[in-house]
């Protein structure tokens, strides 16, 4: 579900802004670090979980407004280079602010421990993450499908020119899409922190997987990103049970296999 959440955010940015956001992994890491700092500041996990992704969304908003927007006229390559450079700046920024050595963040007391299902002991916090990420994916989906602004975003993915001709401010649309994508990356990072801990490089691993999810689902296809995130997550879990060494390779093997048959991805049309 976390893969779907990351893929959904990246797909939204890629679809609306038409740039591969190389800083998506770094925003994921920033979300985790914001959660860590917010817990220390407010002393409450739940409040911190609300604040951290909002902080990342605001950061995304600022990045789009101050960094990407001036480059729309300069062309695709410049935007691509900008997001790549930004990912390095954010990763180094984490080291400057929080240091090179990582931290552990325990789940809140309510979600510590787990359920003994007889054949397996499953941590409560992982179940919470699964449900929470599922609800977030559903909420994002409903927003995009059932609201007017969601419809504008989807229309922006299909044809920015048409949206612009209808009198809609596309720049505001781009900013909103980037902020929403950043929010999804930020909350995925915040939710992951108690599972995997925090380290400055934590976004790098996730970025690779998020790009696989986007390519597999079809560039800019939101339903595809959700489906691909689920496929990758389930495949990785199943393969790891029987052939643990191949659990990372399987992600890329699935992508290669599907793209050979459907170069446009599972749900893509371009």
């Amino acid at each position: 579900m976390l893969y779907a959440l990351m893929g959904l955010g990246l797909s939204l940015i890629t679809g609306v802004l038409n740039i591969p956001n190389f800083a998506h992994g770094a925003l994921f890491a920033v979300g985790a670090y914001f959660l860590f700092s917010a817990i220390h500041a407010v002393g409450n996990f739940w409040l911190a979980l609300v604040l951290a992704p909002v902080g990342v969304a605001l950061l995304g908003l600022a990045i789009e407004y101050a960094g990407i927007r001036p480059l729309y006229a300069a062309g695709h390559d410049y935007q691509l280079l900008f997001t790549f450079g930004l990912s390095l700046i954010l990763s180094e920024g984490i080291i400057v602010v929080w240091g090179p050595i990582g931290f552990s963040q325990l789940p809140p007391p309510l979600l510590r421990g787990g359920f003994d299902l007889g054949f397996i002991f499953y941590p409560k916090y992982r179940l919470f993450v699964m449900v929470m990420a599922g609800l977030l994916v559903l909420a994002t989906w409903l927003f995009l499908e059932k609201t007017r602004y969601g419809a504008i975003m989807r229309a922006g993915i299909e044809s920015k020119e048409m949206v612009s001709l209808l009198g809609i401010d596309v720049h505001r649309l781009f900013t909103a899409a980037f902020a929403l994508g950043a929010y999804l990356a930020g909350i995925a990072g915040a939710l992951t922190a108690p599972i995997r801990g925090l380290s400055p490089s934590m976004g790098v691993d996730m970025l690779g997987i998020a790009f696989v999810v986007v390519a597999l689902g079809g560039l800019g296809n939101l339903l595809g990103a959700i489906a691909a995130g689920l496929i990758i997550g389930v495949a990785q879990a199943v393969v790891a049970l029987y052939w643990t060494e191949a659990s990372v390779a399987v992600i890329f093997a699935i992508m290669a296999a599907i793209l050979l048959v459907r170069p446009q991805g599972l749900f893509g049309i371009r």
Partner: peptide, 20 residues
């Protein structure tokens, strides 16, 4: 005795296997 690649970040499956 499970082997994992350098840089592995998802250990849940290794752990459930170990518990088993």
């Amino acid at each position: 005795a499970d082997r994992h690649p350098l840089g592995e970040r998802e250990f849940s499956n290794y752990v459930t296997k170990a518990a088993g």
